[in-house]
């Protein structure tokens, strides 16, 4: 045990730099012009949802894939890995423990990435507003493009939210990733305020 203690003393970081990349994210500017428009259009019409149900709201996402609601009409599909998905739906309340995972997954997504807050809990804590373990405002931890309020919002509401998100993307306003990179220290400070045992680099590539 003393050995470990001594090692920690010498090493300031609480993670192994050989195991993790500790670079910080950078803003990637938009290219102006028609190409960016084209890309935006493609992004809006090919939203791949990260299949990560963070809370009870994810039960409302299942019907979306069924014949009744069928979001594949809009080119949307669930994707099991954050590397390949570009839409992250935070479905309902986020406890601190889940928030840690949310942040990691969000950081592992690639640059044009969009976040949708599902349910009141992501807006202001909802019915868990006074819980010792549930965050109140998601946008203090990761940039959020769209909120869909309700407890729970119905799939129709979600689809309306998607339409709204697509509009934002096409207008070029859904720059959450760049915003996160720009205000990285603020976000990180907020995250670290609630996540106290942060044993990884600041940014999870």
């Amino acid at each position: 045990m003393t050995m470990i203690g001594e090692e920690n003393k010498n090493e300031k970081k609480n993670f192994d730099t050989e195991l993790f990349c500790d670079a910080v994210p950078k803003e990637v500017p938009r290219i102006n012009g028609i190409i960016q428009k084209f890309y935006d259009w493609a992004q809006a019409n090919s939203l791949w949802i990260l299949a990560f149900g963070t809370g009870c709201g994810s039960i409302e996402m299942r019907p979306l894939y069924t014949a009744r609601y069928d979001i594949s009409r809009f080119g949307m599909a669930p994707r099991p890995t954050p590397r390949q998905s570009n839409l992250f739906i935070i479905s309902g309340y986020a406890s601190v423990k889940t928030l840690k995972r949310i942040v990691r997954s969000y950081e592992q997504m690639q640059n044009p990435k969009f976040v949708m807050g599902l349910g009141s809990c992501t807006v202001n804590g909802g019915m868990y507003w006074d819980s010792y373990n549930t965050i109140n405002r998601l946008d203090h931890y990761i940039p959020v493009d769209t909120y869909v309020a309700g407890c729970m919002p119905r799939p129709e509401a979600l689809i309306a939210g998607f339409e709204d998100l697509k509009k934002r993307i096409k207008e070029g306003r859904a720059e959450g990733a760049n915003e996160y990179a720009k205000n990285f220290e603020w976000y990180k400070a907020n995250q670290k305020k609630v996540i106290k045992d942060w044993d990884m680099p600041d940014y999870n590539w």
Partner: peptide, 22 residues
């Protein structure tokens, strides 16, 4: 390819967890 960030061994999608040991 845009600017590629070289990452290290634990920078993997590990179901949002931190891999324990190699």
């Amino acid at each position: 390819l845009p600017k590629v960030q070289k990452v290290k061994q634990f920078n993997i999608v590990f179901a949002a967890e931190r891999p324990e040991t190699p």
